[in-house]
Design a protein around this nucleic acid. Structure first.
Length: 478
RNA sequence: CGGGGCGUAGCGCAGCCUGGUAGCGCAUCUGUUUUGGGAACAGAGGGUCGUAGGUUCGAAUCCUAUCGCCCCGACCA
């Protein structure tokens, strides 16, 4: 919560004015437009040589990321903004499910990993380092051990359950062959959550709760992510579903009943403590055949009516696991039950590939001109294109539009560069803001600007006030 | 990790085979004219050719090593 601000004493000393302005910039509404001329948006006209798939190419061309080394990227201002936006959606949906955000270190001691047995099991994908004292350290690919250690240190009663902790933190997997940009980088941002429950039944409710919250999360990002029965890999466990976004460039082959793509979670309300309601959602979204190639079963698939059988490719954007007491047994994470006896807690872990989602969204939403951001994740709500930079009336109209949008709580990007119309349109199309307001002397003569949808290409002439009102209405539902 | 390819200006590339101290397009800077889908003209700046050895009178070019990156496969979120 923002603290009430004490009245500031007037400062008479010379040279402090700068400091005051600096503070105001951070404490209050930014008073100057986010002008493209002052932004850092290094768009590339030509296709970068290293980019093979469309999302990687577009992320480089739109100036979202810059490769630092193989599979490791810097996030430039606009890419970072989108990444933060995706994080925010994840946080909001986790909060609704009652999960608690925290943060664990990226560098961990090998000791805990020896305790669980994964230090040896993980193999070369784990980046191992030594500190100056010669101690074995590692850059974490996931955090079951650390979170279990936190749990066993502080939780000793069944009364403190259920508990679900999660973080959004950088992970590292030393892939032998990183590729596809952020879709399969070595360093990646992941939401990883861990539930601790007294019984298997409770833990399965946590599993279902995650499934529900993930469905909502992906839908808010404009994605359809289908839960598919999957393989548990090195995490271990029995129950697991992967969430896959259908895309030609997906790394997994998937098999599913076409009815599943008709399902949407929509804006239905759900009580996350209602076990039956969450279980019903799981049933609804997982009862039809949907599997990745790892678990695909031809005999079962054959039972799907032929006209509904689909084979496609998918990008994995999340996975949920129930693995019982695997870690709690190995690491002694127990609580005292009602009868006073120690009980190993039932656990699961649940991940969302946050940085990978940018690639997945672009794969699912682009055209030959560039990215098309869904309203839920767009870095700016609208682009303002000034067609006659330097023209007094046009400049003023753009600034007014900008101020009106800001006042309404929207975040526009104003292209005030001294470029021709084509260049400005090309940049806007490439970076993919879902709405564009075009302001030129010709339209202003009759009091109108043009509001264009990036997705459909349709545009309409409106008064500036109506254009603002329409954008407010559009984003009211996002 | 097996197989293949590529490192030359900010980006994309040519030059290498056949050795003689580097070029094109875009971008950048200056000026003028332009301005509703990536403008035109004139001028300018920018590269120890990934790195280290070697051969040679002379190496971007030939040889060796090494580093980096990309692709196919195996592997994997």
């Amino acid at each position: 919560m923002p603290q009430p601000r004490p009245p500031r004493k007037p400062c008479l000393r010379a040279g402090r004015g700068t400091t005051r302005q600096f503070r105001n910039t951070f404490r209050y509404k930014v008073t100057h437009p986010m002008r493209m001329s002052r932004y850092f948006l290094p768009v590339l006209k030509e296709t970068p040589r290293e980019a093979q798939i469309v999302s990687h190419r577009l992320m480089l061309q739109a100036g979202l990321i810059k490769q630092a080394s193989a599979g490791i990227y810097s996030w430039l201002p606009m890419g970072y903004k989108i990444l933060k936006r995706i994080e925010q959606i994840v946080h909001e949906e986790q909060a609704k499910a009652g999960h608690l955000a925290m943060l664990m270190p990226t560098i961990q001691s090998a000791d805990l990993w020896r305790e669980s047995g994964r230090y040896d099991a993980y193999g070369d994908e784990m980046l191992r380092i030594k500190d100056r004292g010669g101690r074995d350290m590692l850059f974490t690919p996931t955090a079951e051990e650390l979170v279990t250690d936190i749990f066993r240190s502080h939780v000793s009663s069944y009364k403190d359950l259920p508990l679900t902790l999660y973080q959004i933190q950088w992970k590292f997997r030393d892939e032998t062959r990183p590729r596809f940009g952020v879709m399969r980088g070595r360093e990646f941002l992941m939401k990883d959550g861990y539930n601790f429950d007294l019984t298997k039944e409770d833990a399965l409710h946590a599993y279902n709760r995650h499934l529900v919250s993930y469905l909502r999360t992906y839908e808010r990002m404009g994605l359809q992510a289908i839960p598919m029965r999957a393989d548990s890999g090195p995490i271990g466990g029995d129950d697991t579903h992967e969430f896959l976004v259908l895309a030609e460039t997906g790394e997994s082959e998937v098999f599913y009943d076409s009815e599943i793509t008709d399902l949407t979670f929509g804006d239905r309300q759900i009580d996350f403590d209602d076990k039956a309601a969450c279980a019903a959602v799981l049933d609804e979204f997982t009862s039809r055949y949907a599997r990745t190639d790892e678990t695909h079963d031809e005999a079962l698939f054959a039972q799907v009516p032929e006209e509904r059988r689909r084979t496609a490719r998918g990008i994995e954007v999340g996975q949920i696991f129930y693995f019982g007491t695997k870690y709690s047994d190995a690491m002694g994470a127990t609580v005292q039950g009602p009868d006073g006896k120690p009980v190993a807690v039932h656990m699961g872990s649940h991940g969302i590939g946050v940085s990978r989602l940018l690639g997945a969204i672009i794969e699912a939403s682009h055209d030959d001109k560039g990215i098309i951001w869904p309203e839920g994740v767009t870095p700016f709500h609208a682009g303002i294109v000034n067609l006659r930079q330097g023209d007094e009336a046009t400049d003023a109209a753009c600034e007014d539009l900008y101020d009106s949008l800001r006042a309404a709580g929207l975040d526009p990007l104003y292209d005030d560069r001294d470029e021709r119309a084509g260049a400005k349109f090309g940049t806007m199309d490439l970076i993919g803001l879902p709405w564009r307001i075009t302001v030129g002397p010709r339209g202003l003569k009759s009091g109108v600007v043009e509001l264009t949808s990036r997705r459909t290409g349709e545009s309409e002439e409106l008064s500036p006030g109506d254009a603002v009102a329409k954008l407010i209405a559009i984003y009211a539902n996002v």
